[in-house]
Design a protein around this nucleic acid. Structure first.
Lengths: 148, 148
DNA sequence: TTCAGGAATAGGAATCATTCTTAAAAAGGC
DNA sequence: GCCTTTTTAAGAATGATTCCTATTCCTGAA
């Protein structure tokens, strides 16, 4: 993993506060939740600065962008691979520690104290058409086409 | 599963066309993809009618609202539980037939012809705080609070 | 059949998360 | 300090979805 002093990014004070705040949290905040916290330390920061930095930091692997459901994207200061639980009522997201995986079938995760209702499994890959495109070097994730 | 003639919904012509179109598709369209198709048969239908009906039809179990990642929600005419693959390049979503599950570790799904890169697993449930609220009958999924 | 009341619709405005734009400020190297 | 490049604040723009409202459509009781 890239360390803070090895990035190609300039370590501005805003950037530093965003990383510190995110890494200090056990939760997995959305950009605007983080914005509210960061603003306490740096009142003139703007929401787009938070968004831009989260993307960039995720881009060089200093933090993790979570690919979960819900209407808002969430970010994680812990870049190790691990699973998550999402609360169906309030949307909060927590880690599932690997030692808790055994609990899951019982419907309650003792370690994280969630009542487990189910899970969602989604495979990711390239469809027949895009496999060819990717092989030819055509870029991944072009802008989704506009509706005609 | 509820059949078409058992719903509490009036079976309007718009509703009928939406269900028929969705059930006739092997893909898992977004609301606007479906809108474009439905519009060919019923040119005066509006996008909000499509959205509203998809929600209602999913609400009574006639169709399935897919809880996948990506910037647009997708809907499935097949209400049986099954897994999905999402193309990382174009966003297309296909079914993973249960007989294809054995293929997945090999990185290619023969039956669906996807190149499989990975998967996303997300557990769902109620967090400690919400467990109590749910037990007291407080509603699930209140409007997410506005940012202050 | 007719008609009143509820349900559904078209069309567009509003909302919300996210991305983009631009001019000004800050970093780093020299 | 000076120059070049990166980053920032602020707000506009975008895209998906939801909401609003006046109108139209059903349905069932009279």
């Amino acid at each position: 993993m890239l360390e803070l002093d090895e990035t190609p990014l300039r370590m501005t004070s805003q950037r530093k506060v965003i990383i510190d705040e995110l890494r200090g949290l056990r939760t997995h905040p959305t950009a605007d939740e983080l914005f509210l916290r960061v603003r306490k330390k740096r009142p003139r920061i703007s929401l787009s600065t938070v968004y831009r930095n989260l993307e960039q930091l995720a881009g060089c692997g200093l933090i993790q962008k979570l690919d979960l459901c819900g209407s808002q994207r969430r970010y994680d200061g812990d870049t190790a691979a691990h699973h998550h639980v999402r609360c169906l009522r309030c949307g909060r997201v927590d880690d599932i520690p690997s030692e808790a995986m055994g609990d899951l079938r019982k419907g309650v995760c003792k370690t994280c104290d969630y009542e487990i209702i189910g899970y969602r499994l989604e495979y990711l890959g390239f469809c027949p058409r895009c496999r060819k495109q990717v092989r030819r070097g055509k870029p991944v994730k072009p802008k989704p086409r506009k509706k005609g």
